[in-house]
Design a protein around this nucleic acid. Sequence first.
DNA 1: TTCCTACATAGTAACTATTACTGTTATTTA
DNA 2: TAAATAACAGTAATAGTTACTATGTAGGAA
Lengths: 130, 130
Amino acid sequence: MRYSHQRERIFRAVSERCDHPTANMVYEQLKVEMPRLSLGTVYRNLNQLADAGRLKKIPLADGSCRFDKTKESHSHIVCDECGAVSDVHLPSFESFEHAIESETGYELRTYDVVLRGVCKDCRACAEQAG
Amino acid sequence: MRYSHQRERIFRAVSERCDHPTANMVYEQLKVEMPRLSLGTVYRNLNQLADAGRLKKIPLADGSCRFDKTKESHSHIVCDECGAVSDVHLPSFESFEHAIESETGYELRTYDVVLRGVCKDCRACAEQAG
DNA sequence: TTCCTACATAGTAACTATTACTGTTATTTA
DNA sequence: TAAATAACAGTAATAGTTACTATGTAGGAA
């Protein structure tokens, strides 16, 4: 994986924000300073960075993907109202990994947990409205 | 929700098979006997049935969706090689629901857990090959 | 039983998120 | 510095799904 200015900026953009951006959000942010940047480049690099383990890819129920800086392992919770994505720490599955493997016959590689709910802001809105 | 022949057949098709079919798999199965069935009808009905709680919708990491009969609550494991989807029983999150809510400020509604690994068949293939 | 109306359908077009293709540009290494 | 090759921008294509429109059907009221 060879160096490129675009890749580095894309990596930094995701690392520096906390809202788990989509490819398009990264694109919108960067194209202000890099008008020739293309959306395909953003997708390609996000996936390469995820494959290389430098970023984490979070596929959501609606078919879109979010990207996150990799720090210690954690899961995500999505607001059903506004779509915000926040971090959440869950106990790991490691302790029942073996049980899962013998139940299913699968060799377990990884898992995605996406919780869904309503965030504080949206609950506040709902209360005011109703 | 009014009765329709199509809806009933779509429901039965999912209920009677164990491979967590996609909308398209249901469509392919039924159009043999119902040549005028349209894919849009399958999608619409699967989503309505899921909304009504008669089926469960399982959104996968690749952006596609699988549908499953609803029985007792369970999660799913997907084979990274062949895409097969199997059932798996996990301890529920109920016990830490409160902790999650206070950590995140979200009101928890539901969660999707999708495990990923390699199924027995694909591991057998890999062993033979390599 | 017949008529009415709302919901359902088939067929098609559109949409969203993403990936692939093509010719050009830039990084690396020799 | 020059050749090889990975990455780029721009565009076209794809997959999965949803929306639209005209026609058909379920199911209750007359």
